[in-house]
């Protein structure tokens, strides 16, 4: 692989682009493929096959050729509401799993770069914050403040935008009250039941890193359940 190709790959990854690396295993030559981009040289005659492979989002060999394709898809976006203690551990797990991550918290004393270095923190109320973020069914929401003033608007946004994972921290009682409020705001039972609350799978632990782990385990599992 040429150094300039590697540089381009790193750049594409940081821009969260969808692309593929195509390599001719005989010559060792590689190129970067993007949708609607013409390949050249030995790759040209396999353009159609490579395109189909890319759409299937798989890695592997193109049939009857010496061409290997590795696809890169856009990372999943995880939005955390509440720059709390658990979030500090969540951030570490989420980073090593290559999710794109950002935190929303209107409380300035929580959402500091000192507590969360090198991370995108939006120090605004969720209604305002969501105006500057693109969200869709590839987005996950983890609500951690258990303060209705902060969590509820974020949960409503996530439900309206069909986030594939929505989880909310809080006891069973807190969650019951939350469900009641959402019902009064006009959300259906099906929508409300899609919220994971109390958040996380049952691991038994009560410490912040253990709760973060139980949330991440649920998030990853739901990522694979997603169509």
């Amino acid at each position: 692989m040429r150094k300039n190709i590697l540089e381009q790959i790193i750049k594409n990854k940081s821009l969260k682009l969808e692309f593929a690396i195509v390599t001719n295993l005989k010559s060792g030559e590689s190129q970067i493929f993007e949708l609607n981009k013409k390949l050249t040289g030995s790759f040209e005659k396999f353009q159609k096959e490579i395109e189909e492979f890319f759409k299937s989002k798989k890695n592997g060999m193109i049939k009857n050729s010496e061409i290997f394709v590795e696809t890169y898809i856009r990372p999943i976006k995880v939005i955390i509401i509440g720059a709390v203690h658990i979030a500090q551990y969540l951030v570490n797990y989420v980073k090593s799993l290559n999710f794109e991550i950002l935190i929303i918290d209107p409380r300035g004393y929580f959402a500091t770069t000192k507590r969360f270095p090198n991370l995108k923190i939006i120090n605004k109320w969720p209604e305002e914050a969501f105006k500057e973020i693109n969200t869709n069914e590839n987005t996950a929401l983890i609500a951690l403040t258990h303060d209705p003033k902060i969590d509820d608007p974020a949960l409503q946004h996530a439900l309206n935008k069909n986030f594939y994972y929505i989880g909310a921290l809080g006891s069973k009682k807190t969650h019951e009250n939350r469900c009641q409020r959402l019902k009064e705001s006009g959300f259906t039972d099906k929508q409300i039941n899609s919220i994971h609350g109390p958040i996380g799978i049952k691991l038994g632990g009560k410490s912040a890193p253990e709760i973060a782990l139980s949330i991440i385990a649920q998030l990853v599992s739901e990522t694979y359940n997603k169509k």
């Binding site: 898809i73 999943i76 290559n98």
Partner: peptide
């Protein structure tokens, strides 16, 4: 769906 996990080996390279 296929996950988007990436072990960042190329970044390290």
């Amino acid at each position: 769906m296929r996950n988007s996990f990436d072990e960042k080996i190329l970044d390290e390279a």
